[in-house]
């Protein structure tokens, strides 16, 4: 959605600090994520980019020693507030992980699981429609429509990842978080996912953590560079890759680090 030629802000992180026990992992992160755009988070291992991604749907809650401070505002609502319904939040903010992780169930059940627990379908027919639409949006329908009741784990790696994306979009999330979604895939499966990301951004806001600089450059419109728990620089992807402002950003993306 654009207003006066400016993209609307979907997520706004304000003064976010994250601690694992006594160790601080993120330092005062301030970042606005634009709606219907792909934002790539890059940086060396351990820089905090995945930690930040996990803040956006409160995945860090499951780690006992992890403490998140600051505001993360989505649709004018601070998700770190006590009153936040985390189950509803994760319905709105889906996630795709590095390693494809389909449930050990049929393809159909993989997709129908989310809509079932969120009570999104009133009948078998409605559920069939959700499964079909989700698989079509994930560009997997044609390949699997005749074996919907076979196990999801029987698919190839690239297909499994698209199944996970279909599963994520089945509950119509507004935001999709992707944590290195292609690192376990071959170049063809990677290209399919990248094409899919391009399609999905029409209806969803996407945030992707990637170690591949080339992938960040290819799929994203905005890029943020993290280093040692700080957000060093963020801005339009072409600016970051052609002429970054910060020397640390330049050293990282040109392969001069450390």
């Amino acid at each position: 959605m654009r207003k006066n030629g400016v993209n609307m802000i979907k997520i706004s992180a304000k003064n976010v600090d994250v601690f694992y026990g006594k160790k601080q992992a993120l330092f005062n992160i301030n970042l606005d994520i634009e709606e219907n755009q792909v934002t790539a988070l890059i940086g060396p291992s351990g820089c905090g980019k995945s930690t930040f991604l996990r803040c956006l749907n409160r995945m860090n809650d499951v780690i006992d020693i992890c403490k998140v401070q600051g505001e993360i505002v989505i649709n004018d609502f601070n998700i770190n507030d006590k009153g936040c319904d985390v189950v509803r939040l994760r319905e709105k903010i889906g996630m795709v992980f590095q390693k494809p992780n389909p449930f050990p169930k049929t393809l159909y059940e993989n997709i129908s699981y989310g809509p079932t627990i969120h009570g999104m379908a009133q009948s078998k027919q409605e559920m069939d429609e959700i499964v079909e639409t989700s698989l079509k949006k994930a560009a997997l329908w044609e390949e699997v429509k005749d074996r919907l009741h076979e196990p999801g784990t029987g698919l190839s790696g690239g297909q499994q990842q698209r199944l996970c994306i279909a599963r994520a979009i089945s509950v119509q999330p507004e935001v999709i978080l992707m944590d290195e979604p292609c690192s376990a895939l071959d170049p063809i499966a990677t290209a399919q996912i990248e094409e899919l990301i391009d399609e999905l951004k029409k209806e969803h806001t996407i945030i992707i953590v990637t170690h591949s600089m080339a992938q960040a450059a290819r799929v994203s419109q905005r890029t943020g560079f993290f280093h040692l728990g700080e957000l060093i620089e963020h801005g339009s992807t072409d600016k970051i890759f052609k002429n970054p402002d910060n020397i640390k950003t330049q050293d990282y993306i040109t392969g001069r680090f450390g």
């Binding site: 600089m213 052609k242 002429n243 970054p244 950003t249 330049q250 993306i253 040109t254």
Partner: peptide, 9 residues
């Protein structure tokens, strides 16, 4: 090499 930033320039 797929040069970036200063290397690309």
């Amino acid at each position: 090499r797929q040069p970036m930033a200063i290397d690309l320039r």
